[in-house]
Write a protein that binds this DNA or RNA. Sequence first.
DNA 1: ACAAAAGTGTTTCATATACACCCATGC
DNA 2: GCATGGGTGTATATGAAACACTTTTGT
Lengths: 219, 219
Amino acid sequence: MTTPLTAYSSFPRFHVSVDCIIFAVDNDSLNVLLIKRDFEPEKGKWSLIGGFVNDNESVDEAARRVLQELTGLNDVFVRQIGAFGEIDRDPGARVISVAYFALLNRNEVDEKVLKEYNADWVNVNTLPPLGFDHPGMISKALSVMRRKILTDALAFNLLPEYFTLTQLQTLVETVTGKELDKRNFRKRIAEIPGLEQTDLIDKESSKRGARLYRFVHPA
Amino acid sequence: MTTPLTAYSSFPRFHVSVDCIIFAVDNDSLNVLLIKRDFEPEKGKWSLIGGFVNDNESVDEAARRVLQELTGLNDVFVRQIGAFGEIDRDPGARVISVAYFALLNRNEVDEKVLKEYNADWVNVNTLPPLGFDHPGMISKALSVMRRKILTDALAFNLLPEYFTLTQLQTLVETVTGKELDKRNFRKRIAEIPGLEQTDLIDKESSKRGARLYRFVHPA
DNA sequence: ACAAAAGTGTTTCATATACACCCATGC
DNA sequence: GCATGGGTGTATATGAAACACTTTTGT
């Protein structure tokens, strides 16, 4: 900020919130965590999980706090997608919001806490009526997801620590909505730095068993 | 925003500012518009152009207003690059800032107003000491610029309405810092929708004269 | 023995790169 | 007539897409 002369205190101040687009996969659908609002504003609609920024935390920290309160998880992958600042974006009052998307493994989330929040996983292809400007936030998050799912190694945040290549491929197909050729896919992912073959074999998903891989963040 | 139960007014409020990374080209350098601060905070350092968001405008509108006040220009290409929300990012007070980059043609700017603001064009490769978190803002803007200069048709916002292909190529080379092959470059840009050959010939830059092109936003 | 998912190479096509000469004009 | 920047095509290399069969094991 650069405005000269005048003391800061003469300028208006705003509520600032964070909204989190929390993604997880479930078999073959990409889901986002939404809450059914039984309170104003936007009562009756669904919305993203959000919260106000506090004085003693950065905006990024606020996003991580909101995520932790809802999911119980601390080490979640989070990325900012931008600020949303239309005057009337919140019918309750002027609120400027910074949106983040988070990627996590659905199994790690405490279902009980979700119930308390009236939160539920919803398939991104069949979204219910959403309040605020949340549709725009979600579509921006989805567009980043589809573009960067493999190039930025986003995918691995949605999978368990050990996963099969078929799981990885199904995930990418789910997110992008495109079917992929198995052999081409395996050639392509072979070049991802940090993707490691392990000695473990998964026997759950097939009779023959599939090799398990994991992702370690490259130096 | 979604937090239930409590009235908004019990939550803290923040100064919100916009900071603009204003790019323009000058022969063969990419420049950003900075102001030399002779006032606190960060007096003595350089900074981006910024301003506080007002109650009666959206955040995007605030960015366009700040640009208009400084440059006199109304129809400037602007894109948000994100919110910056570290607690101590402004030594004067807690301020949450939303950064934008803007692309314009240096000739269209009123130099007199720049003088009044103590503003000057600075080559992005030789940036002076900058206040706040402005180095991070600029490097983020630069990274978007380098990646999207042609794919998102950013380049045309930096050129006059009519330009030669050599001007366009020089610009892309300047922004990306890489030299390009003339024939390959022309094959590539031939596929950009909206890039139109005109009947006009520029006689300034060469004896033979070079065909002028222009860019019209595709439907 | 058969169903079910895992695993594995080659050919073809499209795109990207490398590369050098003639053209038109002003001086 | 020569110096200056404008304009053009082809061959090669690299990466992307199409494509089908064998393997292992549980039932």
